[in-house]
Nucleic acid binder design. Structure first.
Lengths: 344, 344
DNA sequence: AACCTCAAGTTAATCGATTAAACAACCGGG
DNA sequence: CCCGGTTGTTTAATCGATTAACTTGAGGTT
């Protein structure tokens, strides 16, 4: 691993390092004759020169590094798509991303911020791996971009999923299929999920739109995992026939998974007897259920892109209010018209 | 964002930058009097000094940056744990990780390698997001560490899961519960999964150990997803009673998910009528099935740690042969003794 | 011939920290 | 009073690329 310096290229090409720099970086290269340029390029190629970005960064005060602080890369499969979006934009722009996982520890966050600012990163993205409101660390620079979270105080650039619109899309799909008795399997309040009231609001809005009187008995809460979904669905299916829902909008795909189980235990089949819509479009789950689950996708990739675009100044963020990224409905096979009921 | 230089600290403390450097970096600090040290530290604190690692790196030829090249952060939920392991070690050692996702594109890989070597990273980890044999890029430095993949040619430090031992653990669990007719729901050969023959070997070895004659009819192959598992399981359950398996070892958790579905369709319950063991311990899936799935965990976190430890020189890698990381069995509720059969 | 312009480079300062080598001040011994 | 050895601190070179300012020589104008 011999290191080749610009001086080596210059020597071989018989010019000064200034000339090499101009040619290779393209700045002011009109001032160098085409012959010289060619000579420099050949020399660089011949010795296998790669520009040392540390030296360049010191001089230009630009590292082409973007810091990405995340609370938990580890424990969620969603992380990937968000990173991928950010990464793609960074690469398109010739930047690299430096990843730090702080595991929601305030001390680790301080350290990470110190380390990143020491590395002179050009921008910082502060990402949460699920949609929530965050208390932004004191020393997070003003121009940091928040990804999948909204700041508790102060207006900073931020992007979050449009949960209300997502909820509306889900419920509209069920209404369009002819359902009138649509349940919402919500997460319990103790989890303090920002998404929960928003998806609920979307649910209510579409019911109103369709002239359906919301039945409070159809809004049930449980732990937002498969087991919770199963119990909640069981309770709903225990309702007397005329009050029983024909469709369930679940807070997430795991609850939907539980709803499937509950339906099967009752001998009901999805979607013939019960339509189900989930939320998240969770990788390796939603599409693998039997039947594949119709669900609302969380736009992780797009949010990752957006955040990086703002961070690199490719796009302006409106101040004060987080940018809402649409959540597309993913149609699969868990929705059909309601079963025709006695006398209907 | 005023930048504070070491010179500012020096001025305030009334010493030279050399002294500040010695105190703050701890090198040769015995040569500075305690009073001066205190004065320097106070001054640094007062002006909010953070050392500029770009300048330091230029001088010391050490960036405390580790490059992590991965083929697909995006499309797998496994990535997270691997990154987390690598990240934790990096942080413990005062390093930062620079992540590049190449999406298995050779050109992107070249670029990434150029960029990383330009950034003068101290080490490089080349990670695959699922266990496979890789054609290592030409210009990957000799001392790069391979994570979750083995090099097609040439001996490099590498770490992969011990799939054979994992397969053995899974099948032993079933044998211990009393099963004799154990099926292996394997992935089809066209997917060229390195893990497939290894897990199969483990399966055969334990059968031999237990004195069970392997029945070729019980080794079936399908697409390694839920749908494939369902079909494979269905075929097995169609077998005449005396040849039908009482337990299934599935290539992965998704196939196990399909096996559950097939069992339910037959009116069989897991584990009373059919025991199932998966592989992967896939987040948000294995534990959420009903009943929760007994499975073999892929040691992503540990492999991530191992790779980073080797990369940073904290641990020696034996040359030539990839390090095998144990895959622990995760006991949940999908295994029980076989149903007592007619006359048994 | 004197003067100006332009093209094609080069020189040297600079970014901010590290560190080998030099230096100053003091002490004790002869 | 001079010398050698500590101890504590400073001086200055260095890492490698960038870039403002300068140089040189050719050609054009009047």
């Amino acid at each position: 691993m011999v290191r080749v310096r610009m001086a080596d290229v210059a020597a071989l090409a018989g010019v000064s390092t200034a000339t090499v720099s101009m040619v290779l970086s393209g700045v002011n290269s009109t001032r160098v004759s085409p012959q010289t340029q060619a000579r420099v390029r050949e020399a660089a190629e011949a010795v296998g020169y790669k520009t040392n970005s540390v030296a360049r960064s010191l001089r230009t005060q630009q590292t082409r590094l973007v810091g990405l602080i995340s609370d938990t890369i580890a424990s969620t499969p969603f992380a990937g798509r968000m990173l991928a979006g950010a990464n793609d934009v960074a690469r398109e722009q010739g930047h690299l991303v430096v990843l730090v996982d702080t595991e929601r520890d305030a001390e680790a966050e301080r350290q990470a911020l110190r380390a990143l600012s020491g590395q002179q990163v050009d921008a910082i993205i502060y990402a949460s791996m699920w949609h929530r409101v965050v208390e932004v660390p004191e020393d997070l620079p003003e121009d940091a971009v928040l990804l999948d979270c909204a700041p508790a105080t102060g207006g900073r650039a931020a992007v979050v999923p449009d949960e209300r619109a997502g909820g509306m899309a889900a419920v509209r799909e069920l209404v369009a299929a002819g359902h009138r008795r649509i349940a919402f399997l919500d997460a319990e309040e103790r989890f303090e999920l920002v998404a929960s009231p928003l998806r609920h609001a979307g649910y209510l809005e579409v019911l109103a739109e369709a002239g359906i009187e919301p039945d409070p008995a159809l809004h049930v809460r449980a732990e937002p995992v498969a087991g919770g979904g199963r119990e909640a669905a069981r309770r709903l299916l225990d309702l007397p026939a005329e009050r029983r829902p024909t469709a369930m909008f679940c807070f997430n795909d795991r609850m939907a998974m539980g709803a499937y189980t509950a339906a099967h235990h009752r001998g009901l089949s999805v979607p013939a007897d019960l339509s189900v819509v989930g939320y998240d479009d969770q990788q390796l789950v939603a599409a693998e259920l039997d039947p594949p689950l119709t669900t609302v996708a969380l736009p992780h990739y797009e949010m990752g892109r957006w955040a990086m675009e703002v961070a690199l100044g490719l796009r302006e963020a409106e101040p004060e209010v987080p940018h809402l990224m649409p959540c597309p409905l993913v149609r699969r096979d868990s929705v059909s018209p309601p079963p025709t009921q006695f006398g209907d």
